[in-house]
Amino acid sequence: MLEQQLVNALSLGCVYALFALGFTLVFGVLGVVNLSHGAIFMVGAYTALQVVTRLGLPLWASLVAALVVSGLFGLAVDFLVLRPLRRRNAPHLIPMIATIGLAIAMNNAAQGLFGAENQRFPADLVPDTQLTLGGLQLSVIEMAIILLSFTLMGALLLLMRRTQMGRALRAIAESPKAALLLGINVEGLFYLTSFTAAALGGVSGVLIALYSNAVFPLMGQPMLHKGIAVIILGGMGDIRGALIGGLFLGFAEVMSVAYIGSTMRDAVAFGLLFVVLLLRPQGMFGRVLERKA
């Protein structure tokens, strides 16, 4: 049933978009491709799992814990890795290499702490009730994913478009030096951006873990590849593009599984991405710009 597949695609695309929003936020404001974002995605999933299984707290508490812990990890990455490189005016390639090494270290640490095997959330954590809306069947987790993802994405868009802080972040994205001359606390907003981006990544990790019912140390690696694809597709540093690109990739994957086969899932999704970028190399919302200051 096509309508049902569209619902499945929407829930998966929402998680991709949420993950990519954090990714593109860091690039847009800090000008850095943070390749440890996939490892932070994994940290969020493990945090929620430990809160539920070891502390016995409800799902909403595990989401809050994942948001906070992932955000703190993102803050630590900025303070310990990106900030020293910013002060040295390191070329763009250096932070990428540094965050790749950090991601490998975080993945190995998780494997040492929790083992390499898949872990699962308790079966009774989320009700298996099916909701019926206009003839469509939605599970509770699918409905929660869609609502939570759109809520967080909407809040971020409002923050960026309607608040003084959002205007300051957009000014930094245009020119950190000019923003500093205007009296904006550039370094403080860098930290806030890193926290927010990592928090979004951690929450998306929990949602994917609940959706697939699997938590393992390398779970962030395929998501990192898809996040890179999404932000390139939507336009590097553009929040609208991350949203549309995530939904596009989710729909492409689900439709390819439904009508072609699961073995062609990534081939179809990334093949469509390749075609789009041949026609529009800067992405759907991207612009070819040169930052001069």
Rank of each mutant, 00 (worst) to 15 (best):
L10P: 04
V15L: 09
L18G: 00
F19T: 04
F19P: 03
L21C: 05
G31H: 12
S36H: 04
G38P: 01
V43G: 00
V43E: 01
T47E: 12
T47I: 14
L49A: 05
V52M: 10
L57F: 12
L59G: 10
L63W: 15
A65S: 04
A65E: 03
L67Q: 03
S70M: 00
G71A: 04
F73E: 01
L82E: 03
R86V: 12
R88F: 09
P95I: 03
M96D: 01
M96L: 12
I100V: 07
A103C: 13
A103Q: 10
A105S: 13
A105H: 08
G112F: 15
G112C: 11
P122Q: 10
P122I: 15
D124C: 03
Q130D: 10
L133V: 09
G135H: 04
I141R: 15
F150D: 06
T151Y: 08
T151E: 05
A155I: 15
L157V: 14
A168L: 01
R170L: 13
E174T: 10
A179D: 04
L180F: 14
L180H: 12
F190C: 13
T193E: 01
S194T: 08
F195V: 02
A199G: 14
V206P: 06
L207W: 03
L210N: 04
L210I: 06
P217Q: 09
M219R: 11
G220M: 02
V230F: 01
G235V: 03
M236A: 12
D238A: 11
G245P: 07
L247K: 02
F248L: 08
F248S: 09
F251C: 14
E253N: 01
M255T: 11
V257D: 02
Y259C: 07
R265A: 00
A267V: 07
V268C: 00
F270C: 00
L272Y: 07
G283T: 03
M284F: 06
M284A: 11
F285G: 03
L289K: 14
R291L: 10
K292A: 12
K292M: 10
